[in-house]
Write a protein that binds this DNA or RNA. Structure first.
Lengths: 144, 144
DNA sequence: TAAATAATGAGAATAATTCTCATTATTTAT
DNA sequence: ATAAATAATGAGAATTATTCTCATTATTTA
């Protein structure tokens, strides 16, 4: 069962305000990564631009959303409610669509050991990773 | 032996100008990814800002450089002279340093087959990929 | 070497994001 | 339930990175 946006806010001890609820509801409804621009359009008249950015920063701070940037330099927002939801992104070069993907368990394990050997050679401590895939979605692959 | 910046420009049939040579020399000297900001600082007084951006776009068009964005949203530039130089990036979360890394041949092969299975499930055609690693460099790991 | 073409520099324009500050909403303590 | 204290909002100004404009200068072509 989905958490309500009010619950999400109160669990994180930040005050429950209209703009925060509206933004969260929109993200809960959308269910996939969305650009700030599209968010803004969808919420036009409901949340001021400065407030939208502030709310996004607030939600980032409490790890309720995460942000990433597409190859076309568009800032994307997505919910990250479930801590265990490790995933990656697949980008369509034509239409800019982004979808979440998961790697097989076996492959993630192989990746972990590859990373361990990179740690040794680079003298970095590696804490996180992300695989980005670039291609064309089913819509765009034909018209190409 | 390294190609000279003049050679690079003439091979690509674009005119040989001072700003283009200066930017290329700087990148050839620097040898690792550099932020546009640092480039700008290093070339202060030699290349106008608007020209710098134009030159970078020109060099991107002929595939002599490539561009990517760090988690902190900094635009980075790097030479990509050797077509075969497939590599990935390792970011330091503390100081923002970026280094190039290569994956073992065996692992790149495993990655390719993982990608094939993702292609099937997602109905995307996948043309390219990049692995991003995030951590702390040898300098920063201690002071943490 | 002259004419044609292309690139440059300076600063204006644009876009995305952050900041300021007076007003309004939310929370806390009674 | 209410008043006082705290925090968030909205509007627009400020900031930053990047692109655009256009008159001048350099490069290439013939």
């Amino acid at each position: 069962m989905e958490k309500s946006s009010r619950e999400i806010l109160s669990e994180n001890n930040i005050s429950i305000t209209n703009p925060r609820i509206i933004v969260l509801e929109q993200l809960l409804k959308y269910k996939k990564p969305i650009s700030v621009e599209d968010l803004q359009d969808n919420l036009k008249g409901q949340v001021a631009t400065s407030t939208l950015y502030r709310v996004l920063n607030d939600l980032k701070k409490i790890n309720v959303i995460s942000e990433f940037i597409t190859p076309e330099n568009t800032t994307m927002i997505e919910l990250s409610l479930h801590e265990d939801e490790h995933h990656h992104h697949l980008f369509c070069k034509s239409c800019g669509d982004v979808i979440d993907i998961e790697l097989s368990l076996g492959f993630e394990q192989k990746l972990s050991s590859e990373i361990k050997s990179i740690e040794k050679n680079s003298f970095f401590i590696i804490e996180d990773h992300g695989l980005e895939l670039f291609g064309r979605c089913s819509e765009c692959r034909d018209s190409f």
